[in-house]
Amino acid sequence: MSDALRELYQEIILDHARHPRNAGVLADPTAKADGHNPLCGDRVTLYLHRDTDGRIDGISFEGKGCAISQASTSLMTELVKGKTKEEIDALMTGFLHLVKGEPESELSEEDREQLEVMAGVKDFPMRVKCATLPWHTLKSALSGAGVASTEAAP
């Protein structure tokens, strides 16, 4: 197997895909959004609960998709807990730079370490959308849009 493939399908990614964290429906969510990649049919529904300070104190997802989208969603749900919309915006910007192979500086050392496992996606331009789908969906949930598509105009 090539190094690029080995990095893409590293054990931690496969583990998240096989055993997604925070899978399921959240009771009494304060926000919800559906994400869809019409090119491949991947779907994700995110459920959020935010506390009175606006920090995420509960998150879950349901969805079907490839290992990359499943792992990315699972990982994201772990990372955004306790964060505000502004913190998540910065995290997302850093993540998008990371998976597109663009220089980035927004990530804290700790976040970078966690997200680094997704960096292998940058060598597979056709798969970047798989990794970014949950983040776009989260953005929709936070802004109240309710729907996200990888093919929507930015």
Binding site: M1, S2, A4, L5, L8, Y9, L39, C40, G41, G65, C66, A67, I68, F124, M126, R127, C130
Partner: peptide, 20 residues
Amino acid sequence: HAHDVATILDGRGIAVRAGH
């Protein structure tokens, strides 16, 4: 998932379609 199948096959030089 079919996309993972196609990506891994591509690593072997094999082009298949994956999707709907």
